[in-house]
Amino acid sequence: MFELRLVQGSLLKRVIDAIKDLVNDANFDCSSTGFSLQAMDSSHVALVALLLRSEGFEHFRCDRTFSMGMSIANMAKMLKCASNDDIITIKADDGTDTVTFMFESPSQDKISDIEMKLMDIDSDHLGIPDAEYEAIVRMPSTEFGSICTSLSTIGDTVTIAVSKQGVTFSTKGDIGSGNITCRQNSSTEKPEEATIIEMKEPVVLTFALKYITTFTKATSLSSQVTISLSSDMPVVVEYKIAEMGHIRYYLAPKIEE
């Protein structure tokens, strides 16, 4: 028996919106720790890892560890039946091939019961070792989102360069080139507006903008984003989900031919 109840149902809607453009189908892993997912995009260039800890739910019951294979697009369709202020309950029984979503309006005057078919999904779980990164940039997630959107109108790739001067995002395309530098700014009174750069070594890495732009669909989950970089390693773009966990995106770099 698996049952979880999330009073802030819009959070699940936002989490699925943050995944659906990257991943088609995924196994959701349910255990006493929480509700988690690890999945790659179809070309195996990017990976998303989601963790929603059990303590973050109003009710969380998971009698044994198991996986539920779901189509993310279908899940997004089902969640469209939920209003933003609805309370969401997800239920599944052992051995069944369906999952039930229940949406309750805050005043309890409307209850929707939605059943969705589960899928058998063959997926590799990758081991991601804990790593020390050469540079870690924390910045407002909206700022990062608008930089990626702006640069993707000019070029297909973004080169992220971290130095003592700050972090520079640059691109080049047929119509021209652009670069945007953000300097460290920790003096702001609002911590969510700060840009903080921790650098052990200068790093320069290039990534496909189409993936990075997809990651910024998670912007509404967190006011800050953390970008962790090391030479010749995938970048990690992390959005913390308050009191619950995180969504982390990993993207392999592009290298010169």
Binding site: M40, S43, H44, V45, A46, L47, D124, H125, L126, G127, I128, T157, T206, A208, M233, P234, Y250, L251, A252, P253, K254, I255, E256, E257
Partner: peptide, 14 residues
């Protein structure tokens, strides 16, 4: 430009 590497070039199945 450049060659796109795969995430599986870095992380192995666990």
């Amino acid at each position: 430009g450049g060659v796109q590497l795969a995430i599986t070039d870095y992380y192995r199945s666990s």
